[in-house]
């Protein structure tokens, strides 16, 4: 069974307003690394909130590891399984001191003190922020704050973390830090990572990309598959990675080029081979 399963999900913020999510069926496997792409207002953030149960779908249902997100009784079980990191690092830090913020979730869970200590230390170590344990949160950089936010979620020991445009407000350095952290969570700790983004550079790191437009899923597949469909992506005003774009333009000019090249080095190889011929 899939870890997250959405069946015929529809959602509108109020009955009069148009549907933000318009009939979504999706399965996300345990331990996978999924990117959800889409331009502004396509409903991707709403989908994130639906997946971790902050809002309930108006139609259809979402199961996270068998728990229905509408089931108020099992709200805690759900939250423990599926954490969420938000866009603005300032708006999700509860405490003024780093380790107290990370301890917030395990404190809420009512864990004994030694266990909280252990979880805080290991969560901070995972995001490489151990030396900042006693620092005040507001003096950290954006990337550091966001890593604290990740640690705060990790302290719940979730099986899945959803990143809702967690890098959108960061500078390039911060973005790299968070991207590296996401990869590590997925590959080393086996945590299911769902990242919502409009940076192509982040999306190509994922194992699977889901493209959304106007509340619907319009494409779903590996990065190579998705970015082969350059025309389709352009139709929904999404960019493709720079090298993919370059090869596509060459193709438009009449050269035979392979599709689905995502990394600069791969593209360089393709081009040198073409030039040698």
């Amino acid at each position: 069974m899939a870890f997250i399963e959405a069946r015929g999900v529809e959602f509108a913020y109020s009955p009069e307003e148009p549907l933000v999510i318009d009939g979504i069926d999706v399965k996300i496997e345990k331990g996978s690394y999924v990117a959800i792409l889409g331009h502004n207002g396509c409903g991707k953030s709403t989908l994130a909130k639906l997946l971790c149960g902050i809002v309930a779908p108006t139609e259809g249902q979402i199961l996270v590891d068998g728990i229905n997100t509408c089931d108020g009784e099992q709200e805690f079980e759900l939250r423990k399984k599926c954490g969420m990191v938000f866009q603005n690092p300032d708006n999700q830090l509860v405490a003024s001191v780093v380790e107290e913020d990370v301890a917030f979730a395990p404190e809420n869970l009512g864990l004994p003190r030694e266990e909280i200590r252990k979880r805080v230390d290991s969560a901070l170590a995972t995001v490489d922020m151990s030396e900042y344990a006693k620092h005040t949160t507001h003096k950290l950089s954006g990337g550091q704050k966001q890593r604290i936010a990740i640690a705060g979620i990790l302290a719940m020991q979730p099986e899945c973390i959803i990143f809702d445009e967690a890098t959108a407000m960061l500078d390039p350095t911060g973005r790299k830090e968070i991207a590296a952290a996401m990869k590590r969570l997925n590959k080393e700790l086996g945590i299911t990572v769902v990242t919502i983004t409009h940076y192509m550079g982040e999306a190509i790191e994922a194992d699977r990309i889901i493209v959304m437009n106007q509340g619907k899923i319009i494409a779903d597949g590996t990065p190579a598959e998705i970015f082969s469909k350059v025309e389709q992506l352009k139709e929904v005003s999404l960019a493709v990675p720079q090298v993919t774009e370059l090869l596509y333009m060459l193709e438009c000019d009449g050269y035979q080029m392979p599709r689905g090249i995502l990394h600069a080095m791969d593209a360089a190889e393709v081009l040198t081979q073409k030039l040698k011929k």
């Binding site: 805690f76 939250r79 938000f86 979730a105 809420n108 936010a149 705060g152």
Partner: peptide, 15 residues
Amino acid sequence: RAEELADAMECRCYH
């Protein structure tokens, strides 16, 4: 900010 913070706190099992 308050709205987002409330969501974030809820996500971290605050009750």
